[in-house]
């Protein structure tokens, strides 16, 4: 029996966990906007402050949040190397060799970009740490509702999303089981060249596909048996409602965006 939660939901109760998922999505979008509006380190400091608040009120261990950076480590390295060596500043370079040159501005700008990326990655991970996939789906569906006017199948899309999500733990269990079974029959997934390794996956992939199809079929039947006929007539039990928490978060977002804009206007650019 394997315990998997998709993405990385961290199951504790906290202020941040209880915030309306729609607002959290809006929060993330606003935060990204703020990061890109920030033209100097003061703006980023404001963003960093908000991040610290979020982490502090989420009860997610800081190590977990830092782990989100592992995924973008390569990207961070790549951007900083590129900017350090190729950014052309105005004064004398600290270092020059063929096409490479290190200027003061390059160093600052690259540090600025790295800060942006780090903040972005950490706050995005906070969304998935504190929001269950189901709530996330509901949030997205609710935010997409206006698209119904242009006949966008909002309900179907959200149903597909949530079905895919609930299938992940089951398929992951199934993968484990099939992998164990094939390993017991001498299959080797760890050695050999890439072509050989991909070929070695076939005995896992085929049974997995078959089981996924069977599941989809049986699930369809089970849904029909429970009177599912698309979203006609359908009501929703869980309505998202705003609370005082959401108001605080809303004020925080508004404050952050205004602050960053003011800092941008009055304090000038980073370089």
């Amino acid at each position: 029996m394997k315990e998997v939660t998709f993405g990385q939901y961290y199951p504790v109760e906290s202020f941040v966990h209880k915030v309306d998922p729609r607002l959290k999505i809006v929060f993330l979008i606003a935060y990204i906007t703020a990061i890109f509006l920030a033209k100097n380190f003061y703006g980023l400091a404001a963003c960093a402050f908000v991040l610290v608040l979020t982490v502090a009120f989420s009860r997610v261990p800081i190590l977990k949040v830092l782990r989100a950076l592992r995924g973008i480590a390569v990207l961070i390295l790549f951007t900083s190397v590129l900017n350090v060596f190729f950014y052309r500043g105005e004064g004398d370079p600290y270092f020059e060799w063929t096409v490479f040159a290190v200027y003061r501005e390059g160093l600052i700008f690259s540090a600025f970009l790295v800060c942006r990326l780090v903040l972005l990655a950490m706050l995005s991970s906070m969304l998935t740490y504190t929001t269950t996939p189901v709530a996330l789906c509901d949030g997205i569906e609710s935010l997409l509702t206006p698209l119904k006017w242009i006949r966008f199948p909002v309900h179907a899309v959200s149903l597909i999303m949530s079905q895919a999500l609930s299938m992940i733990p089951i398929l992951s269990d199934e993968t484990d089981r099939i992998k164990s079974a094939q390993m017991a029959r001498g299959a080797d997934f760890e050695s050999g060249n890439p072509v050989k390794r991909v070929k070695a996956m076939i005995p896992i992939l085929i049974p997995l596909l078959i089981s996924a199809f069977r599941r989809a079929e049986e699930l369809g039947e089970a849904m029909e048996a429970r009177c599912y006929m698309g979203d006609k007539k359908r009501t929703k039990y869980k309505k998202l409602t705003f609370t005082w928490r959401d108001l605080i978060v809303f004020l925080l977002i508004a404050g952050l965006v205004t602050g960053v804009v003011l800092l941008r206007v009055y304090c000038g650019g980073v370089i």
Binding site: E174, A181, G186, D188, P203, P207
Partner: peptide
């Protein structure tokens, strides 16, 4: 490897491993 040859294992619902 040698061990797995000597210890055969049939999992629950083993038909799921057919491919």
């Amino acid at each position: 490897y040698g061990l797995r040859k000597k210890v055969g294992m049939v999992f629950q619902y083993p038909e799921a491993q057919l491919f």
